[in-house]
Nucleic acid binder design. Structure first.
Lengths: 126, 126
DNA sequence: TTACGTGCAAAAAATTTGCAGTTTC
DNA sequence: GAAACTGCAAATTTTTTGCACGTAA
């Protein structure tokens, strides 16, 4: 556990929204200007592998980058408005049931699940 | 509607699995060697925008590329085995219910949904 | 014919790799 | 002290852009 990792993890945990790799790098550099971009990618890879962060596309509303968030206890899904760009999160017991159904009917052991929807949010309709 | 587009659309429609942009290009070039990679990307962008194809990550099991599939009448979700790489598809009325719940409770008008899970398939457990 | 699509070349964006040196435990 | 981690530079992979020419309707 190096101080670089500690810093990156702390930033992801405390981030309110979703950060992409370069945004994470920017924020980390504010506190440790020597921290390298490569370290960001390597750390993200590690955290992903250990299930501590989840990776999202958020419908690629701006470019092909990925977004990251600290994993929460309960899975949630993401709604990306293609008009205003707002990202909403949504928790649902139906989602939990659906996961259960997959595990049972396919005998598939889920490690990561990612549900993203793109469309128009309530503010952007009509 | 150019013959390049017609060809690309036909390949995606008839593809059994999921193709990435370069695989699509390879297959297209077999029939039209002058067809350019850029045209593939541009056509995919168009088809995506019009909701004719869906874009997937499939857990980025091999690299950061995207995979594409022709949109079907009923949405389905994707299960990617992180051990053997097998991709399974799964349809569920719970999935449909969940989408309904999102549209109702958030007044979110869904245009695209993408549900991907990573984990261990039945063959790869134990 | 005219707006739209394509190819080509080049660039941009996102991510990975090799290696030598430096930390962590 | 050994194993693991980092920075640096350079490479790879994936996708986008500018522009002149060509083609479908």
């Amino acid at each position: 556990m190096t101080h670089q990792r500690r810093l990156l993890i702390q930033i992801i945990q405390n981030a309110d929204g979703h950060v992409d790799a370069l945004a994470l790098w920017e924020r980390a550099r504010a506190q440790d200007p020597t921290l390298n971009k490569v370290t960001v990618y390597r750390t993200l890879g590690l955290l992903k592998k250990h299930g501590l962060v989840d990776e999202l596309d958020l419908m690629h509303l701006q470019g092909e980058k990925h977004y990251y968030e600290a994993r929460t206890i309960r899975d949630h899904l993401h709604l990306a408005c293609i008009k205003c760009g707002r990202i909403q999160e949504f928790e649902s017991s139906l989602f939990e049931k659906l996961k259960g159904q997959i595990e049972r009917e396919r005998r598939f052991h889920i490690k990561v699940v990612r549900l993203e929807a793109g469309g128009l949010c309530d503010r952007c309709q009509g």
